[in-house]
């Protein structure tokens, strides 16, 4: 199962292009008439307070304000309604406004596939994709007796439809990866949606549910406390962080799911930045540059380390290609899962 083109070779190559691109972009901004916001800028988040996207946005806000990279105030506005479509709908209402920047994940381009939303991708201008959150399959070793991914698959084969996996929201990233696991390993799982990833993690830590999929940071503390154990990570290469977290294990010691026999190669969550349609190109260039600068701040680096994210800045044409490819992949998964909206089938 191939979702993104984040294979190792491509990764290094595209990091190079990305930096080359960024240099080109800064050059371009200097050439264009220097554009700067002269009023407060709204950072619109497609999630509620405390959620992954919210923290991402606030870190960007913190990084930019603390390092005085912007002169105008930045206001974080949460628009979590309709699974986040409220935020992008707001972009449709504010065509051409250069004072509103939208922060999301893959939700921007995945939401229109499966749900009735009142915006389309034409209403959004992609600005940047900054980091990738990885996904990890966790279990509760004490309550469920599952210690490895192999044991997880074996248990699911013995009890078809009985092994429960918790995740955040329905038909979102977590449920998608669970269906991929089901198909790759030929098993049948019971997916149970919760309001947020941390809520799902607590259910596993409390021994009420066997396993969950999660971004690493959401289960980190429960791993340290011995209530959760990482089984495998949904990337093609192992994570790089070698600091020991718990039980003598580091992030780098977690096997990839492919190694563990579940053939799901790269399932990662991009943290994306958007603007509305018809915004001035110099404004897009300005924010692209700004996001690039935010990534070089110590605050942002702390954030990516803590969340065990893969840093990869994408903008411009590279981002467009990436988005097109992602959308196609999701379309296929959605079609396989029978989640597509009847109209777009």
């Amino acid at each position: 199962m191939q979702i993104t083109s984040l294979r190792k070779g491509v990764l290094t190559a595209s990091v190079l292009t990305a930096s080359a691109l960024a240099v080109g972009l800064t050059g371009a901004t200097a050439a264009l008439a220097e554009w700067k916001p002269n009023r407060p800028v709204e950072l619109v988040v497609s999630a509620g307070p405390g959620g992954g996207s919210d923290i991402f946005t606030r870190v960007v806000q913190a990084a930019l304000t603390k390092n005085k990279l912007v002169e105008t105030p930045l206001i974080v506005v949460n628009k979590p309604g309709g699974s986040g479509s409220e935020a992008f709908n707001y972009a449709e209402d504010n065509v051409g406004s250069p004072y509103k920047v939208y922060f999301g994940t893959q939700d921007a381009y995945v939401l229109p596939l499966g749900t009735k939303v009142n915006y389309s991708m034409k209403d959004l201008t992609p600005v940047a994709s900054m980091v990738f959150d990885v996904f990890i399959l966790w279990s509760n070793p004490k309550a469920s007796g599952i210690n490895t991914a192999q044991e997880f698959v074996a248990k699911a084969k013995e009890n078809p439809g009985k092994v429960r996996v918790a995740g955040a929201k329905a038909k979102d990233a977590d449920e998608t990866v669970v269906t991929l696991v089901e198909r790759a390993a030929g098993i049948d799982l019971a997916y149970i949606p919760y309001k947020s990833g941390s809520e799902a993690a607590i259910q596993v830590a409390g021994g009420h549910i066997e396993a969950n999929t999660n971004n690493p940071s959401e289960s980190l503390e429960q791993w340290k406390a011995g209530n959760q154990k990482p089984l495998c990570v949904f990337t093609s290469a192992r994570l790089t962080d070698k600091t020991v977290v718990a039980d003598g294990m580091s992030w780098a010691d977690i096997p990839t799911c492919v190694e563990a026999g579940i053939d799901v190669k790269d399932f990662v969550q991009p943290r994306t930045v958007w603007m509305a349609a018809d915004v001035p190109p110099e404004a897009v260039a300005y924010y692209t540059d700004l996001m690039k600068k935010a990534m070089d701040t110590p605050e942002f680096k702390d954030y990516t380390t803590r969340n065990v994210q893969i840093t990869k800045f994408m903008a411009g044409d590279e981002l467009k290609t990436f988005l097109a490819e992602q959308t196609k992949n999701y379309e296929k998964i959605y079609a396989d899962n029978n989640w597509l909206l009847p109209a777009s089938q």
Binding site: P49, E199, A201, E221, Q222, K224, A225, R306
Partner: peptide, 23 residues
Amino acid sequence: GVPGSATAAVMMGGLMIWGLSPG
């Protein structure tokens, strides 16, 4: 690390930005 209210959720976001993980 499970916030009971919207306010607690924002505060929890704060904790993480300050470099603390609730848990």
